[in-house]
Design a protein around this nucleic acid. Structure first.
Length: 566
RNA sequence: GCGCCCGUAGCUCAACUGGAUAGAGUACUUGGCUUCGGACCAAGGGGUUGCAGGUCCGAAUCCUGCCGGGCGCACCA
């Protein structure tokens, strides 16, 4: 089914007998609601754009068919501007939202297509920090966006549980009793242990031999170190799962690197036989120089696997077992060359499915790059607690009558939405310089601002005890300019879901929702809803319920949960 | 050396992918609760879009060259 605006655009295109029409929205509503720039048309007809616009305005103004939709059509310079009838708009938008509820804004453009999206690729035995948070928040929002556009999106995570970092951690864990004795979460402690191990090894490189010995033992899959690996690995995994639970993120499947080493080596050997991989300087590499992609080392001189080994096997499994058409990797931009190489290898092997690297820039701190080695990181734990403390205090201050439990619950929801929102509101190609004090703010362009608007809106709705949608509503009563602006905004939500997905850009949605709440707040201050006369009150309540529905839907796509009161 | 990304108001970011007067938040100044929730709203100042050329009816956006900042380029992931 067409959305209101799609329908209007189609009507105009048909009336003007255009093959293609590029519509836009005027910068302010006084100019019109919908606009058609006439530069192309003028070029074809060899007249100037303003002339084209005014002759088209004259032609369309006479069409009786369009009177139902537009109360005015006029040329403004080179633009042909349409003023949509409020009555028509209100009726179509509000009834569409009322009818489709949680699926308002969704479409079927990706129907029948299966996509796997991989994100939150953490390392066991390491810290989970704000960098990972940007990755999960972004990956999860894209996952929801794909679903909202009809794709069958399969969210997965790939955990590296088998690298040298594991051996470093185990080495330090064994020699240092303080970790064993600590009462803190063991999964969390491993991260600290790794960080301290790196610093220790940097100062005393002579210990590296011991670490290598531990690594060999793990790889042999027997012995004391292997057993300790199994045990500690499960702590990390449990810890990651608790984080995902807190963040409200669910993966369909989690892959582990150690499960793909053997099949990866097998695949690599086949590729050596077929000549896709070659020996060079003692190592096994993929030579991609003729594609301008340099060289990718795959197997070390000593015969042990490098990271592409497991990646190759995993990618193959995604295509063969899960039968996906596309495999998306949400990984930071530093690995873009690597993913180009990986995609090229798959193309050369003969796979036609797409392997897409969805990159984003990293999170740094005001005093430089985050680094586990120097200890310059903000961990998830640290960030969460700081924001949560702050928001608990603010909530308590405003609701002295609430139980501690209730305060905790609301503050917790606000904390998670703040963390995710801060990560999502900046476009993916910008470095986020993460300032922890900035993230504690709750006014302006923040999750709390949106949540507050929603809570206030719902508070009004609650005061009207009876279901408004049930009683007859005359939407003709919506005659305020601000009501028209709200309706236009709501009407545009479906196309926003589409473009945000096409561009893999959740920040468009955060911005849209912010603007929607801004409009509502403005409306709220200028117009009285509950104290209006009954006919008008019913119409206004129907409008703000529609706003609440769209906010709720947008929040869901971003992976956030609305709060009813705060 | 080669390649990729970024540079917009004091600060943090937008700008519908080449279109209308470059907009928000924050900070600063001022105003608004006998009013549906003030975690709110309104008003004000603040810009040579890093610099210089070019293409175009039209450039923050495209092309070229510089200048800044960041990141990758063979056994780390």
């Amino acid at each position: 089914m067409l959305t209101v605006l799609e329908n209007l655009k189609q009507q105009i295109t048909k009336e003007l007998k255009l093959k293609e029409a590029n519509f836009s929205y005027p910068p302010n509503s006084a100019l019109g609601d919908l606009s058609l720039a006439c530069f192309e048309i003028a070029k074809e007809r060899k007249i100037n754009p303003a002339e084209a616009a005014s002759s088209l305005a004259l032609k369309l103004g006479a069409q009786r068919k369009l009177k139902k939709y537009f109360f005015e059509i006029k040329a403004v310079g080179p633009y042909l501007n349409f003023f949509i009838s409020s009555e028509y708009l209100a009726d179509r938008v509000i009834s569409a939202i009322k009818k489709t509820k949680n699926s308002y804004g969704s479409n079927k453009s990706g129907a029948g297509k299966k996509i796997m999206i991989e994100y939150s690729n953490g390392n066991t035995h390491k810290e989970y920090h704000v960098g990972h948070l940007r990755n999960v928040a972004y990956g999860d929002a894209i996952n929801h966006l794909l679903n909202a556009n009809g794709y069958e999106s399969i969210p997965v995570s790939y955990i590296n549980d088998f690298g040298i970092h594991v051996a470093k951690t185990l080495w330090n864990w064994q020699r240092n009793k303080k970790y064993e004795e600590s009462s803190e979460d063991k999964g969390y402690l491993l991260g600290k242990c790794y960080s301290e191990a790196s610093q220790e090894l940097a100062e005393h490189p002579e210990n590296k031999e011991k670490v290598v010995a531990i690594m060999k033992e793990i790889e042999s899959r027997s012995g004391a170190s292997y057993e300790l690996w199994e045990e500690t690995r499960s702590w990390s995994i449990k810890y990651f799962n608790s984080i995902y639970h807190e963040l409200g993120i669910k993966f369909d499947h989690i892959f582990y690197e150690n499960e793909f080493i053997d099949s990866g080596l097998k695949l690599a050997n086949e590729l050596i036989k077929s000549g896709q991989l070659i020996k060079s300087e003692g190592a096994i590499i993929a030579n991609l120089e003729k594609y301008n992609l340099g060289v990718l080392p795959v197997i070390r001189t000593d015969g042990t696997a490098l990271y592409p080994v497991a990646d190759l096997a995993l990618a193959q499994e995604k295509f063969k077992k899960y039968k996906v058409e596309e495999s998306i990797y949400v990984v930071d931009i530093r690995q873009s060359l690597y993913f180009q190489q990986l995609a090229k290898i798959f193309e050369l092997i003969g796979y036609t499915q797409k392997l897409k690297h969805l990159s984003y820039d990293f999170v740094t701190l005001p005093d430089g790059m985050m680094s586990s080695r120097t200890g310059n990181v903000i961990t998830y734990e640290e960030l969460k607690n700081k924001i949560w403390e702050n928001l608990s205090l603010e909530t308590k201050k405003r609701h002295e009558d609430w139980t501690n439990d209730r305060v905790r619950q609301v503050a917790w929801n606000l904390t998670i939405s703040t963390i995710k929102f801060e990560m999502l509101k900046v476009s993916a190609d910008k470095i986020i310089t993460f300032n922890i004090d900035e993230s504690l703010r709750f006014d302006g362009y923040t999750a709390c601002y949106l949540q507050y608007g929603y809570a206030r809106l719902k508070s009004i709705v609650r005061k009207e005890a009876l279901g408004i949608f049930a009683s007859p509503v005359n939407l003709n009563c919506l005659r305020e300019i601000k009501e028209k602006e709200l309706l236009m905004k709501l009407a545009r939500y479906p196309e926003l879901i589409k473009t945000a997905s096409e561009k893999y850009n959740p920040s468009e949605l955060t911005k849209y929702l912010f603007e929607l709440v801004q409009l509502f707040n403005d409306y709220y201050h200028g117009v009285n809803i509950l104290k209006a006369e009954p006919r008008i009150r019913r119409a206004r309540l129907a409008l703000i319920k529609a706003v609440a529905q769209v906010l709720n839907n947008g929040f869901n796509v971003l992976g956030l949960k609305v709060v009813e009161e705060m």
